[in-house]
Design a protein around this nucleic acid. Sequence first.
DNA 1: GTGAAAGCGCTAACAG
DNA 2: CTGTTAGCGCTTTCAC
Lengths: 351, 351
Amino acid sequence: MPHEPDRHDGDADADRGRTRPPTIYDVARAAGVAASTVSRAFSRPGRVNAETADRIRAIAAEMGYRTNYLARALPTGRTSMLALVTSDVTNPFHAEIIRGAETAAAEADYSLLLINAQEDDRIERRNVERVVPSVEGIVLASSRMSDSAIRVIAKQRPTVVLNRDITDVSSIVTDNPHGARLAVEHLAELGHRTITYVAGPESSWVDGMRWRGLREAAGPGIRMHRVGPVPPTIAGGGTAVTDVVRSAATAVVAYNDQVAIGLMRALRASGVRIPEALSVVGFDDIFVADLVQPGLTTVAAPLRAEGSIAVRTILSLVNGSPGRTDRPRTLPVKLVVRASTAPCRTARRRR
Amino acid sequence: MPHEPDRHDGDADADRGRTRPPTIYDVARAAGVAASTVSRAFSRPGRVNAETADRIRAIAAEMGYRTNYLARALPTGRTSMLALVTSDVTNPFHAEIIRGAETAAAEADYSLLLINAQEDDRIERRNVERVVPSVEGIVLASSRMSDSAIRVIAKQRPTVVLNRDITDVSSIVTDNPHGARLAVEHLAELGHRTITYVAGPESSWVDGMRWRGLREAAGPGIRMHRVGPVPPTIAGGGTAVTDVVRSAATAVVAYNDQVAIGLMRALRASGVRIPEALSVVGFDDIFVADLVQPGLTTVAAPLRAEGSIAVRTILSLVNGSPGRTDRPRTLPVKLVVRASTAPCRTARRRR
DNA sequence: GTGAAAGCGCTAACAG
DNA sequence: CTGTTAGCGCTTTCAC
């Protein structure tokens, strides 16, 4: 297929139905100029006579010429593409991150390639390695890869990691300790004194931050339990139901909204009323949190901002900014109170 | 940055912190063989002495050599990458399609690049054009591009279109007419005689199919109304509430699940009880349909299969299969009955 | 079975 | 301002 005999000859154009698009040489010949001039007309307008440039572009347009970004990338490294790698694009948690990243990329006239890791670090690694040469920078959102694997990537291309703290790699996180504090304070105000945390994956950096934050926020008056770990999914939340019931807590904080939602469903199926019998708090504020019945009280992370800041950071790294890797950039969170939390009954009775 | 003075010299390896990965030449020199031999050791094992090949691969691994897929793609066109373009990746409708496609791609050792069109045909086109040279095939899911724009893409790379029928382009659709019939029959059995359809975007091929299917399925005993069009989102569904109430129907079929869910929320907010006062049916069976209260009765499309079949089709096109473009491949649907539909009250009273 | 050399489409020095 | 030329990293004839 490659190495057609006559290069720059364009006659075998429609050899198999699939069109070989015109190259810069085809345009050059048609316009009677050198290939480099055509190149300049596209990438360095101003470095070429305005009229010639216009003429070239007109001819190119008419021939249906499209610059081959792949070929351009080889000598320059410029691909105008960025990669956003997520453990699972279909996870609603990533929806707003993706939107934010997408918007920021489009503003800078970059295209964002979304790479799915399928929750599998081997697939993730393979996909990332494959795409690395084609992109100018990489955003890793909830990566399953090891710190060292990520550092290898970061050596090849500007890299930003989300919701994780890795030495020598730029990172952006949400303020989990403060979020945990907000959750505990809210529950405490409602009179709850025994709170159970439903833990997410042990390997998760975020899980550690949330659990620690919760414990630190719980003053002497609050008993903090912990059940799990469970998978960070709706199904995972469902599996925690018996442990939660057994924990005899009047309030639950879940690792994230999915777990909270799964738990609420399972609880309702077991006849536990929410929020009357049990208050539930989630983390992240994914869009579904506002859709379920009752609406889920949750610690809202500025997901969209996280996505767009990540891309802007990448872009400034691409443009040679040094970037700081000493400590993660922390984004503020707030508590969104909905209907899944209510005053503690036991507390009321005591009055 | 490009054109470092000494090519194949690898000494300026750590020139700026960002590592330039070893090339095939670096490996060749280290192994004392020609570059072509290294290349063969990777892509044509068997065409090279087994021992030499092993030795080369060992050295390469030790040096941290990774084949540059971008560079390989230039002469060969082989990138081991496919693109899946969606109007909005974060739309839960695409979740299962993406999963299916992802699985099929991984099985064939391909990587899937997810491209977001941000519901904007210009952005879509720009992104697609940019990525076309880097991928071997393209799946277009709910594309916003014009038929002709899509044909242009299809001329450059094997292309499969989902949920749309375009002359000369392979396409895969779900059986909307049959789905519409199932919905109407179900409602008719429950005693409903007046049904309102909440229409999606007028430009949508799928909307046309669903509305037509509904009308054809409604026999003489059923009155079929139509309101909208509304945007195919939860918010869009909410805007239909007054029209729906005014239509005096006892049952509603929505363009898709999002519209149905948005409508149900708005109805509840207006004090209309579901399913007692109004039955609601959606289309697609996205995961949220089972999460809302009441659970949404919906026409389930085999979304996951659609994704994986699309990728397999692309792969066979890539491998030179002719592919059929005369008529779309149609996938079967079924009705999933949940709690949002119930017997018609008016009907009951009549008995 | 292996090496030498040309070229994929584009860009960037370097002359003029 | 424009043409000439070499080369990005890899593959693939074509000889040996």
